[in-house]
């Protein structure tokens, strides 16, 4: 009886001490989950999710502050990936954050542009070049289509143009399985 108690107590001391020690010494710093979420997000940095950029949104998802369906550019596919990563259930895109649109790039109407540089400051990825009183141009390959430059423009000279399919970007379609009922 006493022996049993002593043995159990001994085990308890050793295990308790080991666990306590391990909990302090082997604490994992940092959060790799944020990186993983960030990798899924489309990096348009559009802020439609309500956070100032993709990384902050990733941080918010990881902390459980934001839901996974707040990213319109990522679309359904993005939500699905996030749901897979986080083991949550898929849910449709939240309407208050916007709708999924075809990928577009900003285009500055060169006739109208007055060279105010407001769009340059708004662009999250520095994809607009130009100087004051000079006509501005969008560097098309760098534009993420975030639309953040549209609102600040005082003369409404920026429009979003859907990206055209070219021979380089053309994709073969998924083969449609034709099931023909015979007879």
């Amino acid at each position: 009886m006493m022996t049993a108690l002593l043995i159990m107590a001994g085990i308890a001391v050793v295990l308790g001490a080991a666990l306590g020690y391990a909990s302090i010494r082997f604490k994992v710093e940092g959060d790799p989950l944020v990186e993983k979420i960030d990798a899924i997000l489309p990096q348009t940095q559009c802020g439609q999710c309500g956070y100032p950029g993709c990384k902050p949104y990733a941080q918010a998802i990881a902390n459980g502050e934001a839901d996974i369906n707040q990213c319109p550019p990522g679309g359904e596919e993005g939500i699905r990936h996030l749901a897979d990563l986080l083991g949550r259930e898929f849910k449709p895109l939240s309407e208050e954050h916007g709708v999924e649109k075809p990928k577009s790039v900003a285009l500055i109407d060169e006739q109208t542009c007055i060279g105010c540089t407001l769009c340059i400051q708004a662009c999250p990825v520095d994809a607009i070049v130009g100087a004051a009183k000079q006509m501005h141009t969008v560097v098309e390959p760098l534009c993420t289509g975030c639309e953040l430059c549209i609102a600040p423009c005082p003369v409404d000279c920026i429009t979003m143009e859907p990206v055209q399919e070219t021979v380089e970007t053309w994709k073969w379609k998924y083969p449609v399985i034709k099931i023909k009922e015979e007879a």
Binding site: D38, P42, Q43, Q45, G53, K55, P124, P141, L142
Partner: peptide, 18 residues
Amino acid sequence: ERENTAASQARDRFEFRN
């Protein structure tokens, strides 16, 4: 691959801007 490249480019540029 194109999308990933564009995304990581955008990420880098965004971080650089910040």
